[in-house]
C-alpha cells in the first residue's frame, strides 16, 4: 500500500529539489523569526539587539519566549525526522513515533511521576528533572521490552515489531488509565493538561539537557539515510547490498526513543507531527532519505513553532494546548492520506 505515496514526488528533478530545499530552509528561518518576534507582549527585536529594550521586555524574551520557541523547534524537528526514519524502517507510510509505543511509554513514565512522585520525597535539586527523566525512562523501557520480546520471538521482522508496538501501546494505555484512577483531584488535573501538551513550561534549566539528547539522536538518525534508502528494496536485498539491517533497526529505534522521549518529557504528547511532516516533505522532494530526513527536521520544526505561536497568541492572555492545534491540522490530513493510499 505504500508504493503510491513513496512514488509521489519521485520524479522531482535535482534542480527543483535543491530550490525547494532552500525554500524550506527559508520557511524554517522565517518561522523562527516570527516565533521570536510575536507574542502576547510586544518585544521589538531591533531594540532588543541594540540593548534599548526595557528589563521586562528583555526578561520576557530571554527567559520565557526564547526557550519556548527553541523547545518547539527541537521537538518538532525530532518528531519529523523520527517519523520519517520510522516510516522508512517499517516501509509503512502510517508509522510514527506513537505507533511503536515510544510516546505512550514516555507518557506512562511521566504520569507515574506525577502521581507517585509526591511519595518519593526526592531531594529538591533533582525535582525539576524528575518528570523528564521518568519520561525518558518510560520510552527506553518500552524500547528495551520491544527488543527483548522480538529477540525471544526468534526473529526480528518489521511486522513483529509493528504488532508488538501496537500491543505495548495498549498496555501503556492501561497503565495511564490506572494512574488516572489512582490520582487525586489535583494530580488528575495536572496529568490531563500534561497529556494535552504545551511548551509553556520551558525554562533553560530543563530544556538544555533535552536539546543535547535530541541533537545527538537527530544526528544519528540523519546518518541512516543510505541504509533506509536501500531498505526500501526489502530486508534481504538491503542485506545483500551491504546494509547491517539489524544495526539499522537498533539505531533508528533507540534514537527515536531517546529523542522523542526527551521531547515528550518536556512538552507532553503532541500528535500527528511525526506522521504528517514526512509525507509533506515526500510530496515536495521525493522519497530519497538523504533529502527527506534533513528536510523533515526543517519542516517539523517550522510547523511546531507555528503551531505553538497559534497556541500562545489566539486566545491571549490565556493559551490553548498546542496538541489541539497540531491534531486539528493533522487529523484531516491523516484521513486524506488514508483515502489516498486505499488500494484501487
Amino acid at each position: 500500500m505504500n508504493t503510491e505515496t513513496l512514488q509521489a514526488g519521485a520524479g522531482v528533478e535535482l534542480g527543483v529539489r535543491t530550490n525547494r530545499t532552500w525554500i524550506l530552509a527559508l520557511v524554517f528561518v522565517g518561522t523562527l523569526l516570527v516565533g521570536f518576534s510575536l507574542g502576547a507582549i510586544h518585544v521589538p527585536l531591533p531594540a532588543l539587539l541594540s540593548g534599548e529594550a526595557s528589563t521586562l521586555e528583555r526578561t520576557v524574551f530571554t527567559e520565557i519566549r526564547a526557550p519556548r520557541v527553541l523547545l518547539a523547534a527541537f521537538v518538532g524537528g525530532i518528531l519529523g525526522v523520527a517519523g520519517a526514519a520510522l516510516q522508512g524502517l517499517f516501509r509503512n507510510p502510517l508509522a510514527d513515533p506513537g505507533l511503536i509505543g515510544v510516546s505512550a511509554g514516555a507518557a506512562l513514565g511521566a504520569i507515574s511521576m506525577i502521581v507517585i512522585g509526591d511519595a518519593l520525597s526526592l531531594p529538591e535539586s533533582v525535582r525539576p528533572y524528575a518528570l523528564p527523566l521518568a519520561a525518558v525512562a518510560g520510552a527506553l523501557l518500552v524500547t528495551v521490552f520491544l527488543y527483548a520480546f522480538a529477540a525471544w520471538f526468534g526473529h526480528f521482522s518489521i511486522v513483529t515489531l509493528l504488532l508488538v508496538g501496537i500491543a505495548i501501546n495498549a498496555l501503556a494505555t492501561v497503565g495511564i488509565g490506572a494512574f488516572q484512577y489512582l490520582s487525586d483531584d489535583a494530580q488528575l488535573r495536572t496529568l490531563v493538561f500534561w497529556m494535552m501538551g504545551s511548551f509553556g513550561r520551558a525554562g533553560w534549566q530543563t530544556v538544555l539537557p533535552a536539546f543535547a539528547i535530541i541533537t545527538v539522536a537527530g544526528v544519528f538518525l540523519l546518518r541512516q539515510a543510505r541504509g533506509l534508502d536501500l531498505l526500501q528494496l526489502g530486508e534481504a536485498d538491503a542485506a545483500f547490498l551491504g546494509v547491517d539491517v539489524a544495526r539499522l533497526k537498533r539505531v533508528v529505534i533507540l534514537c527515536t526513543a531517546a529523542g522523542v522521549g526527551a521531547g515528550v518529557a518536556l512538552s507532553g504528547i503532541i500528535g500527528f507531527v511525526g506522521l504528517v511532516v514526512p509525507h509533506l516533505v515526500r510530496l515536495l522532494l521525493g522519497p530519497v532519505h538523504k533529502y527527506l530526513l534533513p528536510n523533515a527536521v526543517l519542516l517539523g520544526a517550522a510547523l511546531m513553532v507555528a503551531a505553538d505561536l497559534v497556541s500562545r497568541t489566539v486566545v491571549s492572555p490565556a493559551e490553548i494546548p498546542v496538541s489541539l492545534v497540531t491534531s486539528a491540522l493533522g487529523a484531516p490530513f491523516f484521513l486524506w492520506l488514508i483515502a489516498r493510499v486505499r488500494p484501487v
Binding site: I41, L56, V60, R189, R312
Partner: peptide, 12 residues
C-alpha cells in the same frame, strides 16, 4: 485555567 497559566499572557 488556573493550572495552565501562560507566562507571557499574564504579563501582557
Amino acid at each position: 485555567y488556573v493550572r495552565t497559566l501562560s507566562a507571557e499572557g499574564l504579563l501582557s
